[in-house]
């Protein structure tokens, strides 16, 4: 799941996979604006079959947090 999330972040933000880590965030990736964020949220929902709440959407601006939230929501 972690690897898949790193891939999705790199694809949506259009940055090399090597540059994305669990510590990456909207602060460290310059292309991560609000529109890209929406694309990221929708892509994560589609890939993992989950639905985020508005509060969660607002929180998902850091890759580590994304992993925690997706892991909590995704069915085992």
């Amino acid at each position: 799941m972690e690897q898949k999330i790193l891939e999705i972040v790199s694809q949506i933000m259009e940055v090399p996979l090597e540059s994305v880590t669990l510590a990456s965030s909207a602060e460290t990736i310059s292309s991560w604006d609000s529109l890209k964020h929406m694309n990221l949220v929708l892509a994560l929902e589609e890939t993992f079959g989950v639905l985020f709440s508005e509060e969660q959407i607002a929180e998902l601006t850091q890759v580590g947090t994304i992993l925690t939230v997706v892991a909590k929501l995704a069915k085992p």
Partner: peptide, 12 residues
């Protein structure tokens, strides 16, 4: 393809 796959295709 998923949305993420298409993004990858466009990037690569």
């Amino acid at each position: 393809l998923s949305f993420a796959d298409m993004s990858k295709w466009l990037r690569d």
